[in-house]
Design a protein around this nucleic acid. Structure first.
Lengths: 291, 291
DNA sequence: CCTCTCATGTGAAGATTTGCACATGAGGCT
DNA sequence: AGCCTCATGTGCAAATCTTCACATGAGAGG
């Protein structure tokens, strides 16, 4: 039975009792209906209808088909309703991925967004590896660095994360604070162990002697912990620093420190209401993050 | 959702994960599959799949469709099996109709046929009105008289019912029996009240004075009762008379008394195994009925 | 690193399906 | 009785759908 449209045609004929009626409901010519029935009966080797001048009456076989196809029709109608609604509304899952660094900023936004859409389940994925949008692993990704140029991805500029230099109370009490850049050579810093392409990191290497970077870490989270613990002066996102009461801003944010962030979605999902709605919400919330 | 074939295509893509695989299973070109998916997504306004170089992965919507279409596929497969089997085997209902007269002859045949086909339900319809084959009211009809010529009906000659003149013991004791036709004028007869087209009835009117037909009835059954009760000599089918022990055959059957019987089926059902099987069975059983 | 394979995607030609026009026949209504 | 309506059925032209051929890109494996 490899032609579901013919089954659908037969279903309408069985339901309505006439070829003409079925043709009108289906929006096709009645000749098409007749041919569908003939083809289906031929393939099945069973008469589904008895033809007479007043229409088609279903045989036992036809009635059997009617019952099965009726449930199919109902289920497809329900499915169609669900799917269309899903396209226009914000339900189901929303999968967001980013570097773990952004978790503190993102978590409140995600929570608030979910609050607005009770039928939504939020999955927030962070991890070492990059989750791949093209395999459906996530709907929205927040990426840092150069603009990604994956062909199937829709990339749009997001905010530039405001970065500033901070020192913890513990450090301030022991070493004081530099008045300006000229005194940096007399202070200790927290920085990344490897050379990275992050602008603030490159700036640090340019303006601070390597030997003054005494606490070096392999990831952003450890870097943050080092600054908070008072191991040295270091870069932190303003939004992250605000969460600690023991930090003093050494130098205000500068645009050249901040790397651009990108919002990335897969083409196929970018136009859905769910994704669009979330992107709008996210951009609104991110206005306070600006550098 | 008015294109079940596209749903079926999407189902296979969701199941197999690739357009090419689905195309092979469906027996169509992969371009066709792509266009079906595009059309379906366009009509639903939802992306069902995320496209990437290694294939199509189903979105939430796609997975939803997969579940629904899977059950549909199963049910259609089951239906197809039932229907194909039904065409080749003898199951379900067999609806037979005839004049009530033939009930005594038909009942044993129907019972034996049903015994051979345990999955069969027999419906035997007799009644005043003629049941109409073209509306699916019956599969097989046994008709008497001139050959019916309904266009959609398949008519084939059946047996000629053997008819003979009988007298009951009660009549014989009181009036004796006629030696031959010449003595008919001295006997009393049971016959039909109205003029009918039945050959034996016309023969009776030609060879017996009207005043000797003293017991006149409106239907065959009453006619039979009259003869059995000894109201007069009368025509009975040989097969019917055999069921009574108190009847004596006055005159053996003659071909000119018997009306031809016809087996009628509707074109659409005539070629089915069920009908063919029954017709063969019936003809075999009817060999003993011959005039 | 390069090639080989297998996947999707697209424009044009070809084949099947569809629609149209008309024929036919059965009921229903006046 | 006779017309009118509504049903199915069929040949032929048109439109749609499918196929073909080819392009493109991503992995796998040496």
């Amino acid at each position: 039975m490899d032609n579901w449209d013919e089954v659908r045609t037969a279903f309408q004929v069985a339901r309505l009792g006439t070829v003409s009626g079925a043709a009108e409901v289906l929006g096709v010519h009645h000749a098409t209906v007749i041919r569908h029935i003939d083809a289906l009966e031929g393939k099945l080797g069973v008469k589904l209808f008895q033809r007479h001048a007043r229409g088609y009456t279903a045989t036992e076989a036809g009635n059997d088909l009617l019952l099965v196809a009726q449930t199919t029709d109902d289920q497809f109608a329900q499915l169609s309703g669900r799917l269309k609604g899903r396209g226009a509304s914000v339900t189901g899952e929303l999968v967001v991925t980013s570097l773990a660094t952004f978790s503190p900023m993102l978590a409140p936004v995600l929570a608030a967004f979910r609050e607005e859409h009770p039928e939504l389940t939020v999955r927030y994925l962070t991890g070492d590896r990059l989750f791949r949008l093209e395999y459906g692993e996530a709907h929205v990704a927040i990426r840092a660095g150069a603009a990604p140029d994956q062909p199937d991805n829709v990339v749009q500029p997001f905010v530039r994360q405001g970065l500033a230099l901070y020192a913890a109370d513990f450090y301030k009490e022991r070493h004081g604070l530099p008045k300006d850049e000229s005194e940096f050579k007399d202070h200790f810093f927290v920085g990344h162990d490897q050379e990275t392409r992050a602008p603030f990191n490159m700036w640090l290497r340019d303006h601070v002697p390597m030997e003054n970077i005494v606490y070096r870490t392999a990831d952003n989270r450890s870097n943050e912990d080092g600054v908070v613990a008072g191991a040295g002066i270091g870069f932190l996102p303003v939004k992250v620093a605000e969460r600690y009461s023991n930090l003093t801003m050494v130098t205000p944010p500068r645009p050249e420190w901040s790397a651009p962030l990108w919002l990335v979605t897969h083409v196929d999902l970018h136009r859905t209401a769910k994704v669009q709605s979330f992107l709008a919400f996210l951009k609104e919330a991110a206005k306070s993050w600006e550098a």
